[in-house]
Design a protein around this nucleic acid. Structure first.
Lengths: 153, 153
DNA sequence: TCAATAATGCAACAATGTTGCATTTGTTTT
DNA sequence: AAAACAAATGCAACATTGTTGCATTATTGA
């Protein structure tokens, strides 16, 4: 039996392994020092970072106002996303890919080391919500102990 | 076959239908004007409210500093809980019951009227998280169109 | 009713986020 | 490669959100 279905070729761009300059170019954004440094930082660490953590890594290059504008630009361009833990701590993380809609994946918050990991491959289940409600997007934050802290204990 | 299992009698207190004064008494908290008014307001509206909404309802009785302290007291006593939408808007809602651990239920955010409803009866599913991670708590925010807005369209 | 204790509200501060505008930088065109 | 253009930066100044010390006021239990 021969399938007559044509495959649809979808171009996926994965940010984790891409050069910061190329990401910006791809989005038609100017290659500025702060943008490149922020993307590099999020790639290097692999987890979500707070403004404070980003600030201390960036050193002299950090400027509070430019930081907020850089973040806004990268959020708008769908390159990074933002997570809030306990209604207080705001963290920033690199999106998985071009096609990953900001909030459609699960975040894991470690109560011990306070790291936030994006669980890209964990499936978002279908929720049994009451009649009349129409679900479109979903944010999930699981709290517990991460793999690294688990190993140490 | 006769079961020899004894039932365990658990006293559940449901905040939605309880008098504000009784809730405070039950928790050993003083019955102050602001606390009573805030609880009454959350009971009356049934949905989550922002500080601004609470302020305009409270009128003269509202004081910003006392509000933050009142909120903290009621959070600590497990009477209310806090929800953040889009990392910006903070909302407050009455807990379902004494035994409802703050974040262990699903919130529904309506993109049209911006209301947040607590879906008390919607079950939280078991997530398939990577090996090594240990899940303890879970926060879920579903975004879409609520039942009221759905009816109107 | 009075004393003990906790809550309130003012001032003052701290942290977080935003806007206007002159200057600088990145990009495009010649 | 240099000029011209547009967009990003960083300063000042402001707006919003949340916190703390302390004197005053309200609640509660005796």
């Amino acid at each position: 039996m021969v399938s007559d279905t044509f495959g649809i070729f979808v171009k996926f761009i994965f940010y984790r392994k891409m050069n910061a300059v190329d990401i910006l170019k791809e989005k038609g954004l100017k290659k500025t020092a702060q943008r490149i440094m922020l993307i590099n930082l999020l790639q290097k660490t692999g987890i979500s970072l707070t403004e404070g953590e980003i600030k201390s890594e960036m050193g002299d290059l950090y400027d509070r106002i430019t930081f907020y504008r850089t973040v806004q630009t990268l959020l708008d361009a769908n390159i990074i996303h933002r997570i809030t833990v306990d209604n207080i701590t705001v963290k920033y993380a690199l999106n998985h890919s071009d096609h990953n809609h900001s909030e459609n994946h699960i975040h894991f918050f470690c109560k011990q080391c306070h790291s936030v990991t994006c669980l890209e491959n964990a499936a978002i289940p279908v929720y049994d919500i009451p009649k009349g409600f129409k679900s479109e997007e979903c944010e999930v934050l699981i709290k517990g102990i991460c793999d690294k802290c688990h190993k140490l204990s």
